[in-house]
Simulated assay, not measured.
Amino acid sequence: MHGHANCDCENAPNKYVRMALLALIIVSFIAAIVVGKLGDIGNNPKFGLNSLSVTNLNISGSEIIGIWDVEFLAKNPGFLYTNNYPQPTLSIYYQNQQLLLEEYLPRIHVPKKTTISYRVNDLAMATSIQNKGVADAIANDWSQQKVVAFTVKLQTADLNIVLVCARIKVGFSSSSAQGTMLQESSANNQAFTRCSIDYNH
C-alpha cells in the first residue's frame, strides 16, 4: 500500500482568508495614520491676545518702569497631537522702542482640540529710552492723551511661531499709574483677530 501525502486542502482557504484579513488590517491602520497626518496639515495652532494691563507705571524723562500682566488664548485645532512650547519669550514695544526685554515664560501646553488661557503676571519693566523723540511721545500719550499704543510680541524658543499684536491701545485712569487694554468686544474670537502670526516651519 502506497502512503498518501497529507493534504491540508480544507484549511488552505481559511489560511488565505486570515492572511488577507491581516493584510487588510495593516493597510487600514497605515491609511488611518496617513489620513490623520494629512488631516492635521494646515491645522496650525492659533494664538491671540485676550488682555493686557500695566500697574505702577511711571515715566520720568527717559526712564520708564511698570508691572505687566498679559493673557493670551491658545487654540490647538488638530486632533492628533498636543502642542508644547518650552520657554516662549515675551517682549513689549512702544513704536520701535523695546520696553520689556525678551522675558522667558513658562511652557505653553495646549492639548489637542482645545483652547486654553495662558496668563503671565508681574512682569517687571525698567528701561531707559535713548531716543528723546520716542521718550517725549510716550510721555505725552501717557500723561495727556491717557491712551498709549503698545506692541506685544510672543515667540516660541525655536522661532517656529512668532505672534505680533500691534498697536494695542491701553487706557489709563486719572492716576495714570494703572492702564488696561481697550477692547472693542469681549468675544473670544476678538483675541485672535487683533494679532498676526507667522509660522516658520
Rank of each mutant, 00 (worst) to 15 (best):
P111A: 00
D141N: 15
G39M: 03
V147E: 13
T193L: 10
V134I: 15
A74I: 02
N14F: 13
C7E: 12
T89Y: 09
N160S: 06
A5F: 07
L22I: 12
C9R: 09
T180Q: 02
N96M: 15
T89W: 06
R194L: 08
C195K: 07
I26S: 10
L90R: 01
Q95M: 13
S60G: 08
L123S: 03
N44H: 04
G48H: 02
Y94L: 14
P77C: 05
D198A: 11
V162Y: 10
S62T: 11
N14Y: 14
C7G: 09
L182Q: 11
L38R: 05
N131R: 14
K46D: 03
D8N: 13
D158P: 04
S175C: 09
L24G: 12
S53Y: 01
A126P: 11
L52G: 02
E103M: 09
S53A: 05
D122G: 04
V162T: 14
M19V: 13
I65R: 08
Y85N: 01
L80C: 04
Y93Q: 08
S60K: 09
F72C: 05
Y85F: 09
P13W: 15
C9T: 14
D136Q: 14
L73W: 05
N50P: 07
V27I: 11
L24S: 12
I168Y: 05
F72D: 02
S62V: 13
T127S: 15
L21Y: 07
A32T: 04
R119H: 01
I129H: 13
T114K: 00
L80F: 01
N131T: 12
Q98R: 15
R119L: 03
V70N: 00
A124W: 02
K153R: 15
